[in-house]
Structure formats: structure tokens, C-alpha cells
């Protein structure tokens, strides 16, 4: 079996490993690095649950190979908060506005929205809805998620 040595940074920590080329980034994060906050839903780029930041940009980790991250920096949902007492403002807002029920899709939403709010601190409702168009939630509907984003944006501007 062909394997390649890779070295990557996830949430500021460096990891070295050997991967088979066909190992998807989503599976590598979950099964090799134990970072199971990144969720695997459709595995063909539709649901957005596996969204992570690759060199600061949101990407679908099920549509990248782990081998392609050699030498790159990743951020996953685990990097957003150091503990439950120290949540990211977006996480706080999802909590307060009931932006989740089962929580399966939430990490993907959060990792999509962190760079979105960094770029657009005062989004309109339409812009929020377009920003999350690539993330599916099957529990809450999107009303409370949109409300959570609005709330987070408001708090982060203060």
C-alpha cells in the first residue's frame, strides 16, 4: 500500500503522519487525529457538515485528500473554544438563539460563518442566508440559525 508522509498544522498544533493517497481529509481528521467535531454527512460536497478552514478559507474536507494538506494550516471546530466556559461568540449566539437541536450540522455552520463574519461584520439577512446556502440543517429550520448569526455579529461588533 502506497503511503506518503505529511506534516500539517491543525488548530495550531503540528501533526505528522503517513497517509494513503485516497484518505479524505474529513476521515483523516476524525479517524487519524481524533478530531471528531468535524462531521461527515453526505460525503460528496452537498451538506457542508465537514467544513473546515484550509489556510483560513472554508473548504469541504470530504472533497480534499488528506495528502493535499501537507505543509498547510487547518482550523476545525475544536479550535474555536478552549473550554465550555470560553465559547466563541458564534457558539454563544447559537446557544442563546437556539440555533441547533441535534447539533450534527453545527460545526460545519460555525466553520462557514467564522470567516464570513470576519469579512462581513454587519451582514444583512439575505447575505446571511446566502452564506449558509451550502450547509444543510434537518432539525431547526434555518430561522434560529440566521437569528444566531445576527446576534453574534451584533455582539462581535461591540
Amino acid at each position: 500500500m502506497e503511503t506518503h508522509a505529511i506534516s500539517l498544522t491543525v488548530n495550531g498544533q503540528t501533526y505528522n503522519g503517513d497517509v494513503e493517497p485516497r484518505m479524505l481529509l474529513s476521515d483523516y481528521l476524525r479517524h487519524e487525529l481524533g478530531l471528531t467535531g468535524t462531521r461527515v454527512g453526505c460525503e460528496h460536497g452537498v451538506c457542508g457538515a465537514c467544513t473546515v478552514l484550509f489556510d483560513g478559507q472554508p473548504v469541504r474536507s470530504c472533497l480534499m485528500l488528506a495528502i493535499q494538506t501537507d505543509g498547510h494550516e487547518l482550523s476545525t471546530v475544536e479550535g474555536l473554544a478552549s473550554s465550555t466556559d470560553d465559547l466563541h461568540p458564534l457558539q454563544e449566539a447559537f446557544w442563546d438563539a437556539h440555533g441547533l437541536q441535534c447539533g450534527f450540522c453545527t460545526p460545519g455552520f460555525l466553520m462557514t460563518l467564522v470567516p464570513f463574519l470576519a469579512e462581513n461584520p454587519q451582514p444583512t439577512e439575505r447575505e446571511i442566508r446566502e452564506a449558509i446556502s451550502g450547509n444543510l440543517c434537518r432539525c431547526t429550520g434555518y430561522q434560529n440559525i440566521v437569528e444566531a448569526v445576527r446576534l453574534a455579529a451584533e455582539r462581535m461588533r461591540e
Binding site: E2, P21, H31
Partner: peptide, 17 residues
Amino acid sequence: YNAYSSNPAMKPPPFKY
């Protein structure tokens, strides 16, 4: 956490990279 790596559920078939 290597529970799956001995028997990974790989989506794509093997290829040379």
C-alpha cells in the same frame, strides 16, 4: 484515536498520487 485506521472505510478506490 486510531480505531478505524486498521480497517479504514475509504471512499475512493486506491490510486497512485
